[in-house]
Amino acid sequence: MIMNSQTKSQFIAVASITSELSAVMVVAKEISLAAANAKAIAFRAGDKAKGFQPITDFINELAKETIELVTNINVYALLLYRLTVNEYRRTAAYNRFEQAGKLATGARYADSMQEPIAHARTIMQDCQRQFKRDVTQLLGQLEAVMHHARAARVIAANSRIEASQAGEYLQSLQAVAESVDKAAHTIHDNVQRCRIALSIYRNS
């Protein structure tokens, strides 16, 4: 069965989500580690980093939520992949049935092929609709991750301000802020790539 270019793109788009999100997962875990590190530094810095301490809790919470979101999205992406495979099989079957129907022109029982053709068409269209619905839902979940990434960048900016008042701990805390900012950037870019790849299949 020859796969057309749209089906190929669909397979690639769905497979790329898992790949992009595994990178997001690694980065989210790094943020969580940065938060733990920042908490230890802020504890040592005492009053000098008083403003930094609640930020570390927030960073940690954000990282945890991102990990949870990505875990859920990965499960969903796997379901979407299975749906893509099913849609491919159903479409291929429909095309073969139509081909058989045409080749059977003039055959004594050619009409009996009409019911399997109609049934295959219905199932194929159901799969296509389901795929669009699921893509729309997945895009919503990816938007939630983007929201977290944007929040992480705001936190990183606040962290820099608080770090500037931490005396000899300035450099360590600035490094934490930098790593959170960089991680947030990576998450944003990876998730954005997933959204672009999927957006052409969403429900209009």
Binding site: K102, L103, R108
Partner: peptide
Amino acid sequence: APMMAAVLH
């Protein structure tokens, strides 16, 4: 497809 079409005879 050709096999199905042939059987339909």
